[in-house]
């Protein structure tokens, strides 16, 4: 079961939405915008957050989500005038998920699941890209350090690599960190 957090100042609307989502099997919490800060968002431990498209507080939520890696959540945005075509367009574009207010509980259920899945996919791709970029940067650093050891100490490429590796293991550090230290030491002496 997914935890859903509704942030809305319109009490009636929030109550209706809450009841409708609970019927569809979600655990639902509700906050007014005034109550929104990093602590209340943390405490709600939601899988999905639902907000109104016209809430000025959306920017407040963006800051909380973006500045804390652990609070990054899919946000479903409810708009009054969304027609089915623009909802589809929004989902395709991956813009949170724009959904019409009038939509019923069961439909909302599938939208929430799609939003959560899309978000997870987006996050996975981004993490993979980040990982790949770090690996590439690490390899460049290691190559540079290897070059320094070869030029300054006359080691073969294999020896230079083996020495860095054994130092990394004995110091409990990553190979790239040892390589960085070698490059910095070289720059200091240069």
């Amino acid at each position: 079961m997914k935890q859903v957090l509704i942030i809305d100042d319109a009490r009636d609307r929030a109550a209706w939405l809450k009841a409708s989502l609970e019927l569809a099997g979600f655990a639902v919490r509700w906050l007014s915008w005034e109550q929104v800060d990093e602590h209340s968002i943390q405490a709600a431990s939601a899988d999905v957050i639902i907000v109104d498209a016209n809430a000025p507080g959306r920017d407040t939520l963006e800051q909380i989500n973006l500045m804390s890696a652990t609070l990054e959540k899919p946000v479903v945005v409810l708009g009054a005038q969304m027609d089915p075509r623009s909802i589809q367009e929004a989902m395709r574009a991956g813009v949170s998920a724009y959904v019409a207010h009038a939509i019923q509980g069961e439909d909302l259920k599938s939208i929430i699941h799609v939003a959560a899945a899309r978000f997870a996919e987006h996050k996975r791709l981004r993490d993979e890209l980040r990982e790949a970029k770090t690996q590439l940067a690490d390899r460049k650093t290691v190559d540079r350090a290897k070059g320094i050891l070869m030029a300054d100490h006359g080691y073969s490429e294999q020896d230079a690599y083996a020495r860095m590796r054994s130092m990394a293991m004995s110091k409990g550090k990553r190979l790239a960190e040892i390589a960085e230290a070698i490059i910095m030491a070289k720059e200091l002496g240069a």
């Binding site: 507080g57 959306r58 929004a90 574009a93 724009y98």
Partner: peptide, 15 residues
Amino acid sequence: EPSWAAVRDKLMLGE
């Protein structure tokens, strides 16, 4: 627009 997030989203959506 009520928020900068709305400006961004609506630009992306072509609204």
